[in-house]
Design a protein around this nucleic acid. Structure first.
Lengths: 211, 211
DNA sequence: TGATCAATCACATATTCATGCGAAGGGAGT
DNA sequence: ACTCCCTTCGCATGAATATGTGATTGATCA
């Protein structure tokens, strides 16, 4: 069944263009396109909420970022994609923090917008590549630095993953179809390599990214 | 001029397949495909660094995540794309923090891999949609940091911290100057509240921020 | 004031873990 | 051919953990 899309965009030309295009698609319908958050709120009180809302940031009245919060608060299942010309980090992060599930720049083509909506409905998160780059950079700036040399073998990594998943030796043995004594043997070697002597430490090291 | 791509991937079939495909493209060349970070390092000492490296996580010897750090340290201009089956949040974030510029899941098709590389060279950051979703969710979780309302009591949090530090029951008892049986009692209650039944799971949950 | 609950402690038992010792097949490389 | 090293397995034992069934004190709250 077709996903329902709403649009909040103050430029009438763009708004109508996108609405007509999306409504034309088999997989989508676009019954509502308004030019402010306030109007969208009124709409939502009298109609079932769309699955996805495309939202501009610069709008008459309330800003799109503020709108995200208000809409997500009442209609938590709605996914919101920002569609805007702004590519400065502050706006991007505020929008994402407020609850946006995607962030597209306005030069995005109509077919790409369609693809993004479908991606979103499918559990993905559409982002323009430049946006993704900024998001990733944000991670790297806040990165702590680490350095260890563990050099575990592939099998040993398997065992570590089992431990991280909270499995007992027996469960790990079952998962990889080997004997529990083999698991023990691997664990012994892992402990030696990592200079630890308990499951707990291995799990901690692994989750901290030190392996 | 064509961008140069390197591959670090231990599965020979996949590695050769990707290399042949990429090398066939007009916009790309792929002169090096090895199965470990160590081999890539050797290569880099005797050849000019590629523009982009595709890297697996699970590798013989050093893990791909650690490899990112070492390679970026010496060859800062190389962009690294993770290409892996892991969609575990911690692996994703550790890879990004270590300096990866993209993160693709292994079911990504060859043309999509090609597109991702071109996107990266063009200043974007290729990510599988599911990965992008997790990255975005990470933002949203860190903004309203209130949802971590585990119903653990203060004392229970102490005990959890002890476990995370890799302490035994006895050591925890000493640290807080209580009896080992009291530690046991707390642990029992913690397990009930978190619906787990081993130290390992508590530590994992805690380090994943689920407590 | 009686109920609730966090925090403390005890005893018992079954399971799991940590660790030492030893061994054997197979792949990679010298 | 010979040597590493990964992977597999077995046995054994003491330490640590998981789990059950209790009990007592004090603080909070309806």
């Amino acid at each position: 069944m077709a996903s329902v899309v709403g649009i909040v965009e103050d430029n009438k030309k763009i708004r109508d263009l996108i609405q007509r295009y999306l409504d034309m698609q088999d997989e989508l319908s676009c019954p509502v396109a308004v030019d402010s958050v306030e109007e969208m709120q009124e709409y939502l009180e009298e109609h079932p909420a769309p699955d996805v809302i495309l939202m501009d940031i610069q709008l008459p009245g309330m800003s799109g970022i503020k709108g995200i919060g208000l809409i997500k608060e009442k209609y938590n299942d709605v996914d919101i994609i920002m569609l805007t010309v702004y590519h400065d980090s502050h706006k991007i992060f505020n929008a994402l923090r407020a609850g946006a599930s995607g962030y597209l720049l306005k030069h995005t083509s109509l077919p790409e917008i369609k693809e993004s909506i479908l991606k979103l409905v499918d559990g993905g998160a559409p982002m323009s590549p430049q946006i993704a780059r900024k998001v990733i950079n944000h991670f790297q700036e806040n990165a702590p630095k680490k350095n260890t040399d563990s050099d575990l073998t592939p099998r040993e990594h398997d065992i570590v993953n089992g431990l991280v998943d909270g499995l007992s030796y027996k469960m790990i043995a079952d998962r990889y179809d080997i004997s529990i004594d083999t698991v023990r043997a691997h664990i012994r070697n892992i402990y030696k390599k990592l200079h630890v002597n308990s499951k707990a430490e291995v799990i901690a090291k692994s989750l901290k990214g030190e392996i």
